[in-house]
Design a protein around this nucleic acid. Sequence first.
DNA 1: TAGGCCATCTGGTCCT
DNA 2: AGGACCAGATGGCCTA
Length: 193
Amino acid sequence: MDPVYSDIDSNSCDFFPHTDDEDPRSPPTASPHASPPEQQQQRKRRRGRARSDATVQVVKKNRRLKANDRERNRMHNLNDALDALRGVLPAFPDETKLTKIETLRFAHNYIWALSETIRIADLQAGKPGDAPLLLSPAPSPGSDGCSWSSGGSSSSPSPSYCASSPGSPAPEDYGYLQPDPVYGFHSFLPGIY
DNA sequence: TAGGCCATCTGGTCCT
DNA sequence: AGGACCAGATGGCCTA
């Protein structure tokens, strides 16, 4: 089990074990002091006010806990979608799980590579005599550190959005599309080569 | 030990 | 009003 989750369990298991409208941890509001009858009404009013303040606090807290729960679920859904995306991307032999940002960039590059493959295949279909040319086996990073040439094509949109992504274009990122010395570029496009 | 990655909390904003 | 979304803050875990 992920240690984070165990941590969550240990820390937040009491965050939402009950419904929003009840709070067993509500602080007692009874005053320990006795008071003269003439002050009872005032006290009552004051106590009523205090209780409503406490109630407001409890309501706010419950609302916050509920929002936290929703936010947690939302992020879990996001992670599930990310896992699903990892599932359709070509797996690496070392089974290293891609980080979130790696997954997104990989997916972007992968889609682009597949699109290029289709586009170039269509071109080849129109020119049957030519030597087979699919994807450029060695995409070269552009000056932005993230785009690369697409086999001499100038019309195809090479992946460049990530250039605007802060902190990205590390060389190892577009390495997904570079020929791997061990597994080769074809490992990037299973079933096509 | 520093840095990267991650999950969670939180408050703000926008939308329905 | 309440939910969704977002970004910043925080702390834990892991690895070089």
